[in-house]
């Protein structure tokens, strides 16, 4: 079984935020929720780097470990999904996540957090595939359509890659060899290293 992974090439990301916009628009994400965002360090200085981050769909995911109601689960292909009907909005997954991926829409009773929302790797949710309910609650299910996630599909510089881990790693390795420089992809040690 293929293992789905994200990879953001720090050398290529130009902070255009296209991935953020396409995700938000394509999945009709609630107001105040950003499933993906771009972080820039050393802005305006030599050595400025940008990186696009969403849920990394970790192996041995911390969010699954801390969820008190077992609302988060991992598919066989590594994609981590949340069941919004089980989630109680306690926020523990946000505290456990090394990438700040879990998001919470506000505007519920007493301003309480609603069910957690995060990147689904454009793989929908636990509802029936291609159903209206799935689309409304979780967004598109592009994986079931055989497409890569929106953010990676539209990335202009192809900094953001998504898909089968081996293929993504190979493409990145070729780039690194051609550039004659580089290091392991950002976040991979943290997200995918088996303990």
């Amino acid at each position: 079984m293929a293992r789905m992974k994200f990879l953001c090439d720090v050398e290529r990301c130009i902070d255009c935020n296209g991935c953020v916009v396409s995700c938000k628009e394509g999945n009709q994400v609630p107001v105040g929720v950003n499933r993906r965002r771009v972080i820039t360090i050393n802005e305006g200085e030599p050595g400025e780097k940008s990186i696009s981050v969403a849920c990394m769909h970790c192996s041995d995911a911390p969010c699954i470990a801390v969820c008190p109601v077992d609302a988060i689960y991992q598919r066989d292909d590594g994609i981590v999904l949340v069941n919004k009907e089980t989630c109680i909005g306690c926020g523990y997954c946000f505290m456990a996540c090394p990438f700040g991926a879990p998001q919470f829409p506000s505007g519920q009773v007493f301003g309480a957090r609603g069910a957690m929302d995060k990147c689904t790797f454009c793989a929908g949710g636990p509802e029936e595939t291609f159903s209206d309910k799935e689309r409304k609650m979780y967004g598109q299910n592009r994986i079931a359509e055989g497409k890569v996630p929106l953010c990676a599909a539209m990335c202009a510089t192809k900094a953001l890659m998504a898909g089968d881990a081996d293929k993504v790693a190979n493409a990145y390795r070729e780039r690194v060899v051609k550039r004659g420089s580089g290091a392991n992809a950002w976040g991979w040690d943290q997200a995918y290293k088996k303990k």
């Binding site: 780097k49 700040g100 290091a183 950002w186 943290q190």
Partner: peptide
């Protein structure tokens, strides 16, 4: 175009939004 990506660069990216996860995370 700037320093090449290194563990140090990645570390400074981490600091921006997740803090030092190993400590309390």
């Amino acid at each position: 175009p700037g320093p090449e990506p290194s563990t140090a660069t990645f570390g400074s990216i981490n600091k921006v939004f997740t803090g030092d996860w190993q400590q309390y995370g």
